[in-house]
Design a binder for these strands. Structure first.
Lengths: 187, 187, 187, 187
DNA sequence: CATGAATGAGTTTTCATTCAT
DNA sequence: TATGAATGAAAACTCATTCAT
């Protein structure tokens, strides 16, 4: 793995373990096994580093969300695919998921960065799905962003419960959860 | 207003504007219009100050949640009252709500404080409601703390979108969201 | 003496001893007997500190040059007064004189700072003297700034010889040097 | 041009633009368009590089000073030739002149290098001229090195004013300055 | 010879905290 | 109580130099 990746991974690890505010360069270098100057070959400063990690996480999640997505499948199939992917991403990459969740609305992440496209248009895909569902009279009429945020909140809460080991999430339970989220936005 | 209150308000303001990790005492003293030594008359150190602000915010929210609560109303009425209060608290006191939401799990907030009662038993009230609903077979069977977290997560997610101006939140939309959160926990 | 003065003096000393480029804050703090953070209560950074020292030196010299100056004395008397003061300043404050001499034309000192008034109009007094002398037909016709610079170069060279102990400078010798400089600009 | 020359030129340029103390290898490599390791094929380290540039500048000036010098001309003619060459060198090669002037006494330039012959005996030529003039009773009695320094100081001072655009230096003014410098060392 | 990624010692800078007033 | 100058440990950052390719 490249030094740059080492550093980004160590950053994500440390943020997960101790929170952004207690990530110091000293800890970072030790964890990433690089010399103290090395980071400056790749990142201008700490803020830049964190932003890069954020961007990479967002891009990764954006890509992950669309895995196996079939635009011609039924509404529920499409919903299920997207939200299962979201859930699975959170299960496999808890550090990235939590980092995105925690910092997307913090002042540390600039507005423009927050609103930046993740390169996979996953956000637009979800929006389209919602609008489509509303047109068909299946999904409740409401601001599509609001609806998106609602779904995200549900999935996100489920994951947080999973993270603290409140319950296991096997295939059957995942299915139940997705269904539960689906019900929340039906007319 | 007392010096102590000045300091706590300035702390909350700065955390909201720049994030906990970039709140320095220098900024704090300037904003609160007090001398740099003054804080040590009221707080043992920075961590203590932040914990005090956290405690005050939690107490405030706890009190707010129970406004107009009628223990004898129907299950849904009680749910609606509590969650509407939660949503309204978030709308009226964004700094406090976000601070609680963002830092409840940060290492900066001591564990004992995080689990402490807010002085209004609002937490217990919500738990009781959930257990009651499950006993009646209306609310899905799951750990009651987890269920509480699920509801909080939904409301929180919606508020965050609102904070960054993704959408407005009028009476109609508030009603919809409470309903959706309700549906999400039904059997 | 104030901490600020301690720091400025130590700065001047170190620049004199080792040159600007090898003045580090570590040396500075040790020499000035202050804590490492203290400097930042007075100066924004190293450049700011050096500029302040430069300004103070210039102001001091500007004030010194006009000591005992009588605008109604004869041309030569006035010339003698100004240049003797210049020479005496250099003899009593070698560090300041050399610092001004070395850094006035270095890229470290911004053009605007170099051209800044020293607060005593000593520069203008010299210019006026030259123009007056030229009007009277005593001083050679030439650009007055050029003439000023010429005189400065002579005095400055004499001082540098003095600094390296090439000769003593008693009253009689000072008189001779001033006379020598005077001859250099006569018609 | 060879890599070595590229590096030396870039060094001189950067010293002129920002001062020795802020010339970093990073800037140097970029300016000279070479890889960061390349310099170590030609110079042992930074100090060595700067000393090489210094030596080259001194040699160039030494050669320049003797242009058109006629050992059999009159004392004043010889003086004029040498000092005009000095002035013209400064006008045509400001970077080299200033570098020599500014850093001759800096701790960065090794003492032995500073006192080293420039390869053209220009220094000895000036010394001889002075001693000759003193023997003839034309030039003031003083240490010949000091006299040399006095003359250099005058020329240098004039050039510095010229560099910062205080005044132009045309043929007439050059002639005047040489004459003034001459007068300054007469008995 | 030429390169540039990696390094870590050294430097600058920050900032919570103390303490004399 | 209220202050703010002074502090120094810790943090961020720089940069000459090395070395594998």
């Amino acid at each position: 793995m490249s030094k740059k990746e080492d550093i980004m991974m160590a950053t994500l690890d440390l943020i997960h373990e101790e929170g952004l505010q207690s990530v110091t360069f000293a800890k970072l270098f030790k964890r990433a096994n690089v010399g103290s100057g090395t980071i400056y070959n790749y990142f201008a400063n700490k803020e830049d580093l964190v932003n890069e990690v954020y961007k990479e996480s967002r891009t990764h999640m954006g890509e992950y969300l669309l895995q196996g997505y079939d635009a011609h499948a039924s509404l529920y199939e499409r919903f299920k695919c997207l939200q299962m992917n979201r859930l699975r991403f959170g299960m496999h990459f808890p550090k990235k998921f939590l980092f995105i969740d925690s910092y997307s609305f913090s002042p540390y992440i600039s507005t423009e960065l927050r609103n930046t496209d993740d390169g996979y248009n996953s956000s637009k895909t979800v929006q389209d799905l919602i609008v489509d569902g509303q047109r068909q009279g299946i999904i409740k009429e409401m601001d599509s962003h609001l609806c998106h945020q609602l779904i995200h909140g549900i999935i996100s809460s489920i994951l947080k419960g999973y993270y603290v080991n409140k319950y296991p999430l096997n295939e059957e339970q995942i299915r139940q959860m997705i269904e539960s989220a689906w019900k929340a936005i039906l007319v």
